[in-house]
Amino acid sequence: MSVLAPENTKGKVRESLFSRTGAMLIMAVGTVYFLTPIWWLFVGASKSSEEFTSTNPLWFADFDLFTNIGDLFAYRDGVFLRWMLNSVLYTGGAALLGTLIAAMCGYALAKYQFRGRELLFNVVLSGVLVPATALALPLFLIFSKVEMTNTFWSVFLPSLVNPFGVYLARIYATASVPDDLLEAARIDGSGEIRTFFKVSTRLMTPALVTIFLFHFVAVWNNFLLPLIMLSDERLFPVTLGLYSWNTQVNQIPELRGLVIIGALLSITPLVIAFLFLQRFWRNGLGAGAVK
């Protein structure tokens, strides 16, 4: 991984010191750019609304974070907590179940010969290029035919489908589940489905985490679907909820503080999870980039 050979000449050392400083400078500027807005959000969330406008936006005044959180949770009978719970169900639930479904399909595509296999794979692959937003409106029309718009399921069910997950699962299953092992399991008398759950999923675990992450982000970022489907605010995911508050800030100024604290609380769990799971991102991205 270390790329530079040991420097031995004097000129090279000076040149390297120069480029080292330059590189670190660029990295420092990058860090300021990427982290300042998050720092600002954290500082802002810890202030009362008077201090928010009157004190230095990048440094703390009185630390009122917990009072603010209390206000947020109490506002309108705790509708914010409800949104957070909805988001967990929509994104976490759909990503968990969707990963399993995609993994099964990708695994079959990788490990079995069956008629229509290539056709299925190609159709799924072109599905990757269909943007989720293009589906939101027709989904709304279909759900209104069966009078199921403005329900939990109208957002949850479409969120289960992730063609990119199938594509990744096929790549990973090909790479990490040896045919010989499956053959050995067959000789031991294990059924195909049992082998999948007992043996193959274990070998594919890192891959499954990656697929889960991709799926999670896709659902978490899909804004148009809930925006079009839902009108009852008790069904909103937290993104839609904060958006709707933000549109009312001009009429109800107290919402501004709540939007800021709500934004901080809604991103905190994800930021932490992302940092811990970063190595899975890299694995997955590396595989996705080969095509």
């Binding site: 998050i38 982000v217 993104t239 839609l240 904060l242 958006y243 934004a263 809604s266 930021v271 970063q278």
Partner: peptide, 14 residues
Amino acid sequence: RLAFFVPYAIPGVI
């Protein structure tokens, strides 16, 4: 690497 990646955890709306 981590610092530059953090914003990706934040959905477009937020």
